[in-house]
Design a protein around this nucleic acid. Structure first.
Length: 880
RNA sequence: UGGCACGUAGCUCAGUGGGAGAGCACUACCUUGACACGGUAGGGGUCGGCGGUUCAAUCCCGCCCGUGCCAACCA
């Protein structure tokens, strides 16, 4: 029995109720013993400290769309959800919390602090999951994973140990990017460059023995405390006489050599550069080449250490001020100028990163990158949009070793133990009791943890139980699609490909969809720190989740960012409402619908709308196959609004209001079928409103849309029927145009006269023409038109709209003049082409003949219009 | 600095080697029994600029300008 639908759709209660019902029914759970085809994805695990932002909303809407789409195609779908432990972010959050109580993590000690983080996670970690659920995400929550779960932690250890044994993980002293606030090393990717209004200081280094000085320029004068050389270009004549001599380091008085190295840019500054191997990447390389010592002047917390002599204890900024002042008073500062330049900053806390020499664990990337590069190059993994592949190649070809250790407490502690007796490392999955090298029991585990991305790189298989050969892994790995933000292409996607290939021998996914960046109305990137952003939960509260999902989907064009302001939501909401109202109309007319009754022969209108639905759904599927989400949304929007509502429902009213019982029954059957088809097709984009409506349809059987299938295609619409429907649409549209152009008062019923050749057509569609064009009963006659008629050409017929009022003659003359101008304009363009012998000879024949046809058509129209104009003018003149 | 995108109606954006499209906004008319978050019609664009290829360029190519992303970065 059809239920009544409320006058307005109220999203909130429906969303809560339906989501719970879907969960209760277990619709999101993917069985491992299924026999149907399978489809799987892993969610990009959001940061456990995070909350849903619009980028997540977009990405997860699209993934949910794919998941539901595949279910409707009959796949067993696994969408694996979970969160990651976000080492630095989470630790920072909990530390801030502690700071409010005047404590640091060191007050608690490692173990107690980690307990504290787990507590925090238990309390707030579910927030992001709840938000995903509010979005409608149909993840298999029974399988939810966290990167620090025992199973995933075991996978991390397993991978670390295997890579270490394979020589792909090593420990080494290296110049790393160091965040003094977080007191940890950062990877290159975690330290983006930002423009800083720095200064360039010119400093004199006096030659030992006193015959002159070398001037160098630097943006970080305080690093001179760690200088171990001054370098010049070997072929630089200005400085060649200094090479091999020694200069006196200002302030500290240390003697350091002048060396030659080709890395020096002769064009820059004085052409001489101070060398600080412990605190600058270029200098580090130079120092290695020339065997220079490296003097570390920094404490991990960013203050200067004892090597800085009198400056020890100052932080970098203070030291810089002091050093500059001292240089100045000693007359060694010969210039200062502004020098804006790019300096790496900590991705998490925005502190300036300090290059620092330290012992770290590294992963050797080149051997892992090679097969991952080949996989994309050979198309075994496809990136969408394809334009990202170049970026991927470039990065992978120039890949550098990955610093994987982090000086944090929250994360996967590195499974390596150093022996107090022999200093060797023992690396093992199980905690060892003694040194593998000398047997000593005095071993201590490395205190560092692994970069969070190390565990994320294993996500597609660690979530499925690897290294065990689980049923889930067998059935759902490798996955089909990964959808994610382009800014983590290297952080995450590339590393997953490398790890997947290395450890499972398979690519972790076939397709990578890199979604658009969501910006605000001014085109700015959303940013937590700058307070720029729209909370998707606010959007959902105001407009409804379906409206937001639809809007985001319709804006998700490949290769383009999304500018999102609240007002772009209006369209999505209007569409939800339109669908709702169409359903209300249907239900009003389905009160006595009998699903069991044999439907009679379908009318042209019935067959047409079913066909249009088939086409729309097929087109939408083709769009989804190519990740053209916006096209899919637009195709279905146009079908529902522009065809179902604008035409079919208006035509169905005739069947419902007329007295023909058989026509009414077939229209009912068609309406139910088409509405259910439209709801099913839209369900992946707008799951809530569609399921809510579907449950009210008279053919509802208690199952949710997701448990069903897309409608099966009917036969094609025969050409003659298609043409007839086109003609009807044209006729109605042309009459409406005349009404509009002549500004006829809306309630006026106009008379319409067709040529007698149109009699069969008019006989079949008189009711439709009357209703849709607001016309009186159409007539058929070949008599010449009366002077007050407006004549339009449609599908070869000369159609008359009877105005019956001489006042409209002037309007009609104006309308015909306008028409003539348009025709003439087109005619000139066409004639110009046809007069060009090159066109006639070289253009494709079908183009030429089409042009000829058009020309003939235009000429005939022109004659008719001119003829009509002449007659009207004569009549008007005669009357005057 | 290099690579890659993008620049189309007032706004947000589709699109294509053979007469420029949608939604919103705007104008006019319409409170017709699904819907004013609506209906019908209409106005509005040298498709960033300059060259080139072509019978034909908004589309292909080159250069330039503007915007963005990615990568690198000279101390």
């Amino acid at each position: 029995m059809p239920a009544e639908l409320a006058k307005r759709f109220d999203p909130k209660p429906v969303e809560t109720r339906l989501y719970q019902a879907w969960m209760d029914r277990g619709l999101f759970h993917a069985p491992t013993d299924g026999t149907r085809p399978r489809f799987s994805m892993v969610i990009p695990p959001p940061n456990v400290t995070g909350s849903l932002h619009l980028g997540h909303a977009l990405n997860n809407t699209l993934q949910d769309l794919l998941a539901r789409h595949k279910r409707l195609l009959g796949f067993d779908v696994l969408w694996m959800p979970g969160t990651d432990h976000a080492g630095i972010s989470t630790q920072v959050v909990v530390e801030k919390d502690l700071a409010k109580r005047g404590k640091t993590r060191h007050d608690l000690g490692r173990e107690a602090f980690v307990d504290q983080v787990w507590e925090w996670k238990a309390k707030y970690g579910a927030r992001i999951v709840e938000q995903l659920q509010a979005l409608g995400a149909s993840c298999d929550w029974e399988r939810e994973r966290f990167t620090m779960d025992p199973g995933l932690s075991r996978a991390v250890r397993e991978v670390f140990v295997r890579l270490h044994h394979q020589g792909l993980i090593y420990r080494s002293e290296y110049l790393v990017s160091w965040c003094p606030r977080c007191t940890t090393v950062l990877s290159d990717l975690e330290s983006p460059y930002k423009l800083v209004n720095g200064k360039l200081y010119r400093i004199r280094y006096e030659l030992v023995g006193g015959s002159g000085a070398i001037e160098v320029e630097t943006t970080r004068p305080e690093t001179l405390l760690g200088d171990t050389a001054v370098a010049v270009h070997p072929e630089d004549e200005r400085w060649s006489r200094f090479i091999g001599k020694r200069v006196r380091l200002p302030l500290l008085g240390r003697e350091i050599p002048v060396v030659a190295d080709t890395f020096v840019d002769r064009e820059f500054g004085t052409g001489a550069v101070k060398v600080t191997p412990a605190h600058d990447p270029n200098d580090f390389e130079c120092g290695r080449r020339l065997g220079l010592p490296a003097i570390n002047i920094l404490h991990p917390d960013g203050r200067l250490n004892e090597n800085a002599g009198p400056y020890a204890g100052l932080d970098v900024a203070e030291a810089r001020k002091q050093v500059v002042a001292d240089l100045d008073t000693q007359g060694l500062l010969s210039g200062v100028r502004d020098h804006p330049h790019e300096v790496p900053h900590c991705d998490r806390c925005d502190t300036q990163v300090q290059p620092l020499l330290s012992e770290q664990w590294f992963m050797r990337m080149a051997p892992l990158a090679a097969p991952a590069l080949a996989a994309v190059r050979e198309g075994r993994v496809a990136l969408h949009p394809k334009s990202w592949e170049n970026t991927y190649f470039h990065w992978m070809e120039n890949i550098r070793d990955w610093a994987i250790s982090r000086q944090l407490w929250w994360g996967h502690r590195i499974p390596a133990w150093q022996c107090a007796a022999c200093s060797e490392w023992t690396v093992s999955v199980e905690d060892p009791s003694h040194c593998a090298h000398c047997g000593s029991a005095e071993i201590a585990q490395e205190s560092d943890v692994l970069d969070t991305w190390f565990s994320s790189a294993l996500w597609p298989f660690s979530t499925m139980g690897w290294p065990d050969e689980t049923a889930t892994l067998r059935r759902f790995y490798p996955t089909d699609v990964l959808s994610t933000a382009p800014d983590i292409l290297f952080f995450w996607v590339a590393r997953m490909i490398m790890m997947g290939l290395h450890f499972t021998g398979e690519l972790p996914f076939r397709h990578v969809y890199l979604h658009a960046l969501v910006r605000d109305e001014q085109g700015r990137k959303f940013s937590k720190s700058k307070g720029i952003g729209i909370d998707p939960l606010d959007v959902m509260a105001v407009y409804g989740t379906d409206a937001m999902r639809f809007t985001l989907t319709s804006l998700a064009a490949q290769g383009r960012d999304i500018r999102f302001g609240m007002q772009v939501m209006e369209g999505g909401r209007a569409f939800v409402t339109k669908l709702w109202n169409a359903a209300r109309f249907a239900l009003m007319n389905l009160a006595d619908y009998d699903p069991g009754a044999r439907a009679g022969e379908a009318s042209l209108y019935d067959r047409w709308i079913r066909h249009r639905m088939d086409v729309a759904i097929a087109d939408a599927h083709a769009a989804l196959d190519e990740f053209r989400f916006n096209d899919a949304a637009q195709i279905l929007y146009h079908f529902v609004w522009g065809e179902l509502c604008d035409w079919y429902i208006e035509l169905a009213k005739l069947a419902f209001q007329g007295g023909d019982e058989q026509r009414r029954r077939t229209a009912q059957a068609t309406l139910v079928a088409v509405l259910r088809g439209a709801l099913t097709a839209l369900h992946p984009i707008m799951p809530f409103v569609t399921d809510e409506i579907a449950a009210s349809l008279p053919d509802a059987d208690g199952r949710f849309l997701m448990e069903g299938r897309y409608p099966e295609r009917g036969g094609p619409l025969d050409a003659e029927s298609a043409r007839e429907m086109d003609t009807l649409v044209d006729v109605v549209t042309r009459i409406r145009q005349v009404r509009g152009e002549l500004e006829l008062p809306q309630p006026t019923l106009v008379g319409v006269t067709f040529p007698s050749a149109a009699e069969p057509f008019v006989g079949r569609h008189a009711a439709a023409i009357r209703a849709l064009a607001r016309a009186a009963q159409p007539r058929c006659s070949d008599e010449p038109p009366s002077p007050t008629a407006s004549v339009v050409l449609v599908q070869g017929w000369s159609l008359r709209v009877e105005l019956d009022d001489p006042r409209f003659v002037a309007d009609e003359l104006r309308r015909l003049d306008k028409e003539l101008v348009r025709i003439d304009k087109d005619l000139v363009l066409t004639a110009r082409k046809l007069d060009n012998p090159n066109f006639v000879e070289r253009a494709r024949p079908e183009v030429v003949s089409a042009e000829r046809e058009k020309c003939a058509q235009l000429e005939s129209e022109r004659n008719t219009v001119q003829d009509r104009l002449a007659k009207l003018r004569r009549a008007a003149g005669g009357a005057a």
